[in-house]
Design a protein around this nucleic acid. Structure first.
Length: 550
DNA sequence: CGGATTTGACCGGCGC
DNA sequence: GCGCCGGTCAAATCCG
């Protein structure tokens, strides 16, 4: 029976094929492509997920191998290779039906279809090139920004070291310096937040050095609006937020960490930095991952300081604070999902004020990047400047897991959902109602979800205990491989070599060395997020951290 | 014994 | 003003 008459045109998208096509086409918008394709066998049916009749899958895959940017200018000969299976991929545009065409018409139709296919591919290629060009520009800007940021951090560190000897006395001095707008080491990772704050305070008491800071931010305008949002939403929180810590931290630490109640008023009177820090501090990164363990291992040391029953969730919420350094303001909340208790939700908040171990660094980088993304993206979303679909497709095209940025929550939050298994082209939505989400590559998803799933989550992913995860092995290699694919997809040739190289090498390393997988994956993710998010500075630990288990 | 955890109390914000 | 709720404190307790 001829495949044409088989009426088998309505098949659901062959994921394998889709995957291959995606790989081949890299960043080409696969969804758009599929949506524009119709099965000639299926009367005008929009082939949302239809590519080829079932009978032609094998052939389709073979052809798919040819579908790559370099071959988009496919020659007719490419299609004349008689596979024995007429590929009726393409009728785009019109709804004209080719259903039940007789054999005599097939050849003509094939030619037409092929021509259309060529046109479509040409168009895709063109769009792809443009996408790559734009991405390249974005990466360039991001890279420059990161370089400046790193430089700033280095300068601040030097400055800090200079003052390091005079501890207590100096700390007071630092407080004054802060008030005067001079960034300090502890805040080295507050760049983004500070930038935001600066902008926000522009109409108020603009710091004298704000201009220089702004120069570091490519998304200043957006952040500016973010600040407004944050300040409105968090000023009270920052100053209030309960009693705050009555710890013996130095004033400086207090200002950058949870603000002791005694200093609340100072904050209220708010120096720009403090307000900015508050803003940053309130930016949260939430990680959802399946895990049996009570907490994730992320390389940092945590101390539980409280536990409460949260409304609407039978599972208690545990509160932890980073104990790797006195006065470290980073906190995290750990709670199981009410809907699925196998899912552990870890929310990080704050910025570390101390060096992080490699394992924690990876996590910190990722969450930091996510937070940065949030700060630069959530508002964009709020302002309608950013399209969720755009982010989904552009930033993290082939993912399964995703990051959700929410500006509607009490605090701007980035949610990294690592609970989803890799499903090509899927566009999932997190439980919460959020503005938009960004899918992570399968690799990330699988990696995070898979690996960490076991242990609590991200922490583990980036942490060290990956090797011990039994479930990990399965997702492991594929996750890494996907991470690589992903990198290719979103950071095409135009991407800074370093980013791509880092990612690939990281993933590769992960493949060959399980113990390094988390770090490698984290590096890859960081590269990805960083390159797309705008400020995902790797080493800076804007926030996050992770946990250590107990 | 020191550090970590538990747990009831407390505080501030927010909505009614 | 009151009650709810999230977040935190800090004394009591546990643990290595």
């Amino acid at each position: 029976m001829d495949e044409n008459s088989s009426g088998g045109g309505r098949l659901s998208l062959d994921t394998t094929l889709a995957s291959q096509l995606h790989k081949r086409k890299q960043s080409v918008d696969f969804d758009h492509f599929t949506l524009s394709c119709r099965s000639s066998n299926d009367a005008g049916r929009v082939a949302e997920m239809d590519f080829f009749p079932v009978e032609k899958k094998a052939c389709a895959v073979a052809v798919a191998d040819k579908v790559q940017p370099a071959s988009l200018g496919i020659k007719k000969e490419d299609f004349t290779v008689n596979t024995g299976l007429r590929l009726l991929t393409a009728n785009t545009g019109s709804d004209q039906s080719t259903v039940d065409d007789g054999l005599s018409r097939n050849e003509d139709d094939d030619k037409e279809n092929k021509n259309e296919l060529v046109l479509i591919r040409a168009e895709l290629y063109r769009v792809n090139e443009e996408n790559q060009r734009l991405r390249g520009m974005l990466n360039q800007v991001t890279s420059n920004y990161n370089s400046l940021q790193m430089h700033l951090v280095a300068l601040m560190q030097q400055r800090s070291q200079r003052n390091g000897d005079e501890a207590a006395a100096d700390e007071k001095m630092e407080v004054k310096q802060h008030d005067s707008g001079i960034p300090l080491l502890p805040r080295q990772f507050m760049d983004l937040g500070r930038l935001v704050g600066m902008s926000a305070d522009a109409d108020a008491d603009e710091p004298s050095n704000s201009s220089s800071d702004r120069s570091l931010s490519p998304t200043n305008n957006v952040e500016s609006s973010i600040v407004d949002y944050h300040l409105k939403k968090t000023s009270s929180i920052v100053s209030g937020g309960g009693r705050g810590f009555a710890r013996e931290d130095s004033p400086d630490q207090g200002s950058q960490g949870w603000v002791p109640k005694s200093q609340t008023k100072v904050v209220d009177s708010k120096s720009p930095e403090q307000a900015q820090e508050a803003t940053m501090r309130k930016a949260r990164v939430s990680v959802r991952a399946r895990s049996e363990a009570p907490m994730i291992t992320d390389g940092c040391q945590w101390r539980k300081y409280g536990q409460k029953m949260a409304k609407g969730n039978p599972c208690p919420r545990a509160y932890y604070r980073c104990t790797m350094a006195t006065g470290c303001p980073v906190r995290k909340q750990v709670q199981r999902c009410a809907d699925d208790r196998t899912i552990l939700i870890t929310t990080y908040e704050g910025n570390h004020n101390h060096p992080l171990p490699p394992a924690a660094m990876a996590m910190a980088s990722t969450t930091s990047a996510a937070a940065s993304m949030l700060l630069s993206g959530s508002m964009s979303s709020a302002n309608g400047l950013m399209n969720s679909d755009f982010l989904t497709r552009t930033m993290l095209p082939c993912s399964s897991s995703m990051a959700t940025i929410s500006a509607s929550a009490p605090f701007p939050t980035v949610t990294l959902d690592l609970t989803h298994s890799p499903t090509p082209l899927q566009f999932q939505r997190p439980p919460q109602s959020s503005q938009f989400q960004m899918n992570f590559p399968n690799g990330v998803g699988a990696g995070f979800g898979g690996v960490p799933m076991q242990p609590p989550s991200l922490p583990q992913v980036f942490g060290k205990t990956l090797g011990s995860q039994s479930k990990f092995s399965g997702l492991h290699s594929s996750a890494v491989a996907d991470a690589v694919k992903f990198q290719h997809a979103i950071v095409p040739t135009a991407a800074p070599p370093s980013l791509l190289a880092d990612t690939v090498s990281a993933a590769t390393a992960a493949i060959t060395a399980d113990p390094n997988f988390t770090a490698a994956l984290a590096a890859a993710i960081t590269s990805i997020i960083g390159s797309k998010g705008g400020s995902g500075n790797q080493t800076s630990g804007i926030s996050n951290n992770s946990n250590s288990n107990q």
